[in-house]
Design a protein around this nucleic acid. Structure first.
Length: 315
DNA sequence: CCCAAAATAT
DNA sequence: CATATTTTGG
């Protein structure tokens, strides 16, 4: 078993955070249109990269590549360090229609690039699900709770599906015991989650385990685990583009040898336990649970303020 | 060419 | 909303 350990943490350094998870629960994904618009509207306003300390290393590309000009769908909104828009406002979440009067935009025929679920985004997802509980953990609610701009219900639903499958696999193999389940055939026989690159990295809570029975409701199954590590302070981050780290290891994990320093940050950073949400209506947006957290952030100077506190019916 | 992730359809 | 299938990217 130790051997197993060695390979799972070898990948830890690969993915995993660096300067993220610093925000309570509000991330703003940049929609392609927005990014594009920004690029256009934002000349080279790089302003002093006044980032706190220099930006770190591997994150997303510090410099946004030239966006495909006309008629192109610019799938690279990725603008992690984009200077905080002095604009107040988050714009249209959905790229469906925006700026009907904007200059030179192609409202129609604009298709979304492809959402890349980066670990951070996934963490937010898991976090939301964990806090909601299986009952309320439906795509719509999750999406609303995540409050990620540019994220649509479909995205969440699709990911949720995969997430559930991942869970099932884990539980099935863990206590199943049985023998070999030989069914798999060529399936990954990994008992451990050596597979599922993304899911493995998330601090998946204990999880409400599989029980889909409607009758027994243990109140709020919110987990006591420290999965609620919403740290604060986080800049905007886009997920689209290239995740930098490829996913597929070309069949059979062969190359691992990454003698890289074994430095990892503790996955556990205990934070205050938040209170469970009081049964919210399935549909009513209701007040956001106890995500009061702090959104003060860097009010002082940048003026960058996250005004995404409550779902003010923007959806 | 195969696999996995996301999108899309049912 | 959940599951199945198709598409797309790597």
């Amino acid at each position: 078993m130790r051997e197993d350990d060695s390979n799972w943490f070898s990948r830890w350094e690969e993915e995993l955070p660096s300067l993220e998870e610093l925000m309570p629960l509000s991330q703003t994904l940049i929609t392609p249109d927005l990014a594009l618009a920004f690029d256009i509207a934002n000349p080279s306003n790089t302003t002093t990269t006044t980032n706190n300390h220099n930006s770190s290393l591997h994150q997303n590309q510090p410099l946004p590549p030239p966006p495909p000009p006309p008629a192109a769908v610019s799938p690279t909104p990725t603008n992690p360090l984009a200077s905080p828009p002095p604009n107040s406002g988050d714009f249209g979440v959905d790229s469906g229609e925006l700026g009907s009067g904007a200059a030179g935009d192609e409202p129609r025929t604009l298709k979304r690039p492809r959402l890349v679920w980066t670990p951070q985004l996934h963490k937010r997802f898991v976090d939301a699900v964990a806090h909601l509980g299986i009952k309320n953990a439906v795509p719509k609610t999750i999406m609303q709770l995540m409050n990620v701009d540019g994220l649509t219900r479909e995205n969440v639903a699709s990911h949720l599906q995969k997430y559930r499958l991942y869970l099932k696999r884990m539980q099935g193999l863990s206590s199943g015991g049985g023998g070999g389940t030989g069914g798999g055939g060529g399936l990954t026989g990994g008992t451990d989650a050596a597979t599922d690159h993304l899911f493995a990295s998330s601090p998946v809570p204990a999880h409400f385990l599989h029980s889909g029975r409607p009758n027994s409701d243990h109140f709020l199954p919110f987990v006591p685990v420290a999965a609620l590590q919403h740290h604060h302070h986080q800049q905007q981050m886009a997920a689209v583009g290239h995740p930098q780290l490829p996913s597929q290891y070309h069949r059979q994990m062969g190359h691992f040898g990454s003698p890289t320093n074994g430095q990892f940050e503790h996955p556990f950073l205990p934070r205050q336990t938040q209170q469970p949400v009081h049964r919210m209506g399935a549909s009513v947006p209701n007040t956001v649970p106890g995500y009061v957290e702090d959104l003060e952030s860097v009010n002082g100077n940048g003026g960058r303020k996250v005004l995404t506190l409550f779902p003010t019916g923007d959806d």
